[in-house]
């Protein structure tokens, strides 16, 4: 592992954690239990395109683990782990289909995966299948936040590439 790679992973993990913790302060717009918007998944996408998918996975797991150490309960850990892992899986699948000019779309699909994974966790924890009716709310939220953060990531990735981070 080169020093450059370790540094890149550390910096991106720090950014992901910052977003993750800041996100906890954002009031949830819709009444869905325990579910967060998953804005920090955007760092997983940036890492996948800037470094590699393996490094993106490392950063995602570090963020989930450290995030629950800093500010979370066991429940919060399950939510962010499920959301983070499913978003990562989708990113890995779509990496080959979409190039850097369509990161915004990858971000939307990742956000949908993230939100629906959290919904499944909510159904399991609350033991209430009716919660599944929140899926349309979460799909709308995912498309909006995913597109917004995706465009932001796409723009910043262009700048980061110019800095020759890799």
């Amino acid at each position: 592992m080169s020093a450059k790679r370790i540094t890149s992973i550390a910096i991106l993990t720090a950014v992901a954690l910052t977003i993750f913790i800041a996100e906890a302060q954002i009031p949830v717009l819709i009444a869905v239990p325990g579910i967060k918007l998953g804005l920090s998944n955007i760092i997983t996408i940036v890492a996948a395109y800037l470094l590699s998918r393996r490094d993106a996975g490392i950063i995602m797991m570090l963020r989930v683990f450290l995030g629950s150490v800093f500010g979370g309960s066991m429940l919060a850990f399950f939510y962010s782990a499920a959301g983070g892992i499913c978003a990562f899986a989708v990113i890995c699948l779509l990496y080959k289909i979409f190039d850097e000019k369509q990161i915004w779309a990858v971000s939307v699909f990742a956000a949908i995966a993230h939100n629906l994974a959290q919904l499944v966790i909510a159904v399991a924890i609350m033991n209430s299948p009716a919660i599944i009716w929140y899926a349309p709310w979460l799909v709308i939220a995912a498309v909006v936040t995913g597109a917004f953060t995706g465009v932001a990531a796409q723009l910043s990735l262009g700048r980061l590439k110019n800095l020759n981070v890799k």
């Binding site: 009031p27 009444a31 239990p33 325990g34 009716w133």
Partner: peptide, 21 residues
């Protein structure tokens, strides 16, 4: 801390149960 349950307001059918996680 999140007050999600309070913000949901009144429910009149079974579609969206009020949940305080």
């Amino acid at each position: 801390p999140d007050q999600v349950c309070v913000r949901q307001g009144k429910i009149k059918n079974g579609a969206y149960p009020i949940v305080c996680l």
